[in-house]
Design a protein around this nucleic acid. Structure first.
Lengths: 343, 343
DNA sequence: CACCACGATGTTTACGTTAACATCACGATA
DNA sequence: TATCGTGATGTTAACGTAAACATCGTGGTG
């Protein structure tokens, strides 16, 4: 065990070491390492053998220094705990890997915990060629962090369209589809459990819900304010369950819909018999809820794909389409919605 | 808009540029940049002003090359889609940030998609000082990927204790607590919905469930095989619901428990009246399930903390405790369990 | 047979930073 | 006043790689 530490050389094996052993120049080693064509097969084999023997690994710092690029993208976020964030990151990860890029996660502590970031206070030191910001840009400002100048940026879920290219799910259209679906089933109006006010996505969903009701000439009930958690949905559900006139609910995400449904179950109200519920996100569990949840499907994979493509386009200095890039949503019909009893 | 591209210099601003503008040597710029004490205040201000004006950002590749370390840890995983993985990553992220380390995510495509990884075929090129492997090490082997020699490694959720340091939740104890709880409530025996066979964690949970039943002299019903998804839990639930003797179920994770409960609800069987259900993980939504789920709480934050600490200890060549580091679990009692009707 | 083209390989240099050492000015001390 | 120490700043070199250029040998062509 103790020799494990001893065995580890302070510095790694370099091209020069490999070159010496293989009896070639280090440039030839470099050529083998990068797959350059003009190396004769016999030489290549010698070099590969030497690499193997010494356990050579290219030093990516030196490589990045020489090439002027890291082949790494940063992702700035508050948390991975929300389904939306982790799925977006996963999609970005997949797409970036395909393009030969690595992903570095950059957590931003909330303003209240400032200083926790330690060495990362200065975003500028990051070894990345560009960043995807998965949060409200103004929250970044609030956290007293400034995106470095000359840094390529794409923003998700934000109103930063003026300042940066934005990729986002078509929040408004999704909310519109959800609300219309409930109206078309014959419900008098649709009640709403919203996300937190500081979220741009939540704001857009609420706004589209309101506009859809108004356009249909329906009354607009006061929205219940939630915070994305199932618990907040439960609390909202307890309030709504008091109201016998409430027969249709649009929750701004699936977790809150889950909480709402629990509240109604506990009150002995049936879903969708007494009340219809629609969510937003289409998390993997949504179809296993009781009843399976009708919800707005977000195409996170597509969001991730467009983020990476947009960012790489900027990095490669290719012409890009600025402005907001909207990824369409679609309503997935399941068992949590039905016409009202009276209909 | 077009000038945004033009404005961007091909190469960044270097210390030499700052030094020239500030009228000092680049070494002094370096000292300011790294916060070295022996720089007189007036000089410091000049340098800072020059940095500001030129938009200087230190080049971390050069820095890493010089220092011989990246201040970055890699996390190797298949997916972020499972709650366990994303929460573990989040915890690792938080702890690493506190230590001044960045996190690079390294997705490993399944063997069937080999080649997709492109530039990452050779794990060795990664710009990391060490890696956390969140997967079965033998699966890494199957994917034809080899951990580079001389790379510092910590493994989560694996049986690799012989080859690498391992940090893991105490799977066995959690499963034991869950099973015992149901037996103590008076149930004849406990049925089980397991995770996929290739998962070490799933195997340990199943094994501990079986041993607990045997130790109590109970019959061991055949486990239902799931794959962590709510859908597979639902399928298992449909099977178990056929069996009137089944009054207590231990599902290997919360999502499958969710599916199981839906199956029982659909059959008109009440929970916990007719059947008690226990999950594993304690995902945030678990207390919003209907009914709120009794489950085994995993301390992901602690797992992440110990991973990072263990890895940094290795990197810093400090004496570490090898072997498997088990993080305790605890059973959280909620509304999905009760004594059997007959009791 | 002289010359040239081309492919394989070697040599030089620069990427941006920082450790180590060198220098310099200034004030304290004998 | 000569000397020395101290703290601020400058100079040099090296980290590992790869682009650019240089060299060498071989085979083809007029």
């Amino acid at each position: 065990m103790a020799d494990a530490a001893r065995r580890r050389p302070r510095r790694g094996v370099s091209m020069a070491d490999v070159a010496r052993l293989a009896g070639v120049s280090s440039q030839t080693v470099s050529r083998v390492s990068t797959g350059h064509p003009s190396v004769v097969e016999s030489t290549r084999q010698q070099v590969l053998a030497a690499m193997q023997e010494l356990g050579y690994r290219p030093n990516s710092a030196a490589r990045a220094l020489k090439r002027g690029e890291f082949r790494t993208l940063g992702v700035i976020l508050f948390t991975l705990a929300t389904t939306g964030n982790s799925r977006t990151v996963e999609a970005i990860l997949a797409q970036a890997a395909q393009e030969g890029y690595a992903i570095t996660l950059i957590p931003v502590a909330m303003p209240t915990q400032d200083g926790v970031l330690g060495a990362f206070t200065r975003l500028g030191e990051l070894a990345v060629d560009g960043v995807v910001v998965i949060m409200e840009v103004h929250l970044l400002d609030a956290a007293n962090l400034e995106l470095p100048p000359n840094m390529q940026v794409v923003v998700v879920d934000s109103d930063a369209g003026e300042r940066y290219p934005v990729v986002d799910t078509d929040q408004a259209d999704g909310a519109r589809q959800a609300t219309r679906h409930l109206l078309e089933l014959g419900h008098e109006t649709v009640w709403h459990v919203s996300g937190p006010i500081e979220s741009f996505a939540a704001g857009r969903r609420t706004q589209a819900w309101r506009e859809t009701l108004e356009a249909a000439g329906k009354t607009v009930p006061p929205p219940q304010l939630g915070d994305w958690t199932a618990e907040s949905g439960y609390q909202a559900g307890l309030v709504l369950a008091q109201n016998p006139g409430c027969t249709a609910i649009f929750a701004a995400n699936d977790q809150m819909a889950l909480g709402v449904m629990r509240a109604f179950h506990e009150q002995g109200r049936s879903i969708p018999g007494d009340v219809s519920v629609v969510g937003f996100d289409d998390i993997p569990d949504a179809h296993a809820f009781f009843p399976p949840l009708t919800t707005v499907h977000q195409d996170f994979a597509e969001v991730g794909r467009r983020c990476v493509e947009g960012l790489l386009r900027q990095i490669r200095n290719e012409p890009g389409s600025p402005g907001t890039d909207l990824v369409p949503t679609r309503l997935v019909l399941r068992g949590s919605t039905a016409p009202p009893r009276s209909a």
